[in-house]
Design a binder for these strands. Structure first.
Length: 200
DNA sequence: CGTAAGATTTACT
DNA sequence: GTAAATCTTACGA
């Protein structure tokens, strides 16, 4: 079981290589996470929670292990997993993944609301990943389960034998949040993996 | 109540 | 490479 109670900076790297399974809509899609970003809530100028609790980000102020899904530019959804002690409003943004099961479902969902050419682009980018998993704002606050149980969304560790080469760098798309926060290397990905997003 | 800006993606020049 | 799409949230008056 993955421990989500720690700080976002500590939890984020442990999510790389982990498998996220969605049974939303009665169809199963499983992905292997290859890229995430840490958001340290109220202490992080780039976080949605930086200016305190609001109607949109309320979920982040609750207990860890829940989804925070928000709409961006009216067109896209991005999904986070809430982590850390309750009240810290920490979360990990899921930025990219490799689809390992439910490929057919993933393709249908991507083609229904956009264009997708290569298989490696199926879940390459936070909004694309949300589409593949079937996540929308309706699922904001939904609980994330472990391997056991009947949760609609579950998170399980990757294979122990798997060797992951970790890479870190500045987060993407938060340039307007201030030069300091933009420079913090709070983005984590699996080095060399083709499913990692290009960034900016 | 009005306005500005956003943790992005896609299409076009 | 640059720009447009599109709407919700947040903040100022």
């Amino acid at each position: 079981m993955i421990d989500l109670a720690g700080r976002a900076l500590d939890v984020a790297p442990t999510l790389l290589g982990a498998e996220l399974t969605s049974r939303l809509g009665g169809e199963t899609v499983r992905v292997r996470l290859v890229e995430v970003e840490a958001y340290e809530g109220t202490d992080d100028p780039a976080s949605h929670a930086y200016r305190g609790r609001t109607a949109r980000n309320g979920v982040m102020f609750g207990p860890p292990g829940h989804l925070y899904v928000y709409r961006h530019l009216g067109l896209h959804h991005c999904a986070n997993v809430v982590v850390g002690p309750p009240g810290t409003a920490s979360a990990v943004l899921l930025r990219a993944a490799e689809v390992t099961a439910g490929l057919e479902v993933a393709w249908r969902r991507r083609l229904a609301s956009g264009v997708c050419r290569a298989e490696r682009d199926l879940a390459r980018g936070p909004a694309r990943l949300a589409v593949v998993l079937g996540l929308t704002r309706e699922h904001d606050g939904m609980a994330v389960g472990g391997a056991a149980g009947d949760a609609l969304v579950t998170l399980t560790p990757g294979t122990a034998a798997e060797e992951i080469e970790l890479a870190t760098g500045p987060r993407v798309g938060i340039g307007g949040s201030g030069p300091v926060a933009a420079a913090w290397p709070w983005r984590f990905w699996i080095a060399g993996d083709v499913h990692v997003s290009a960034g900016r």
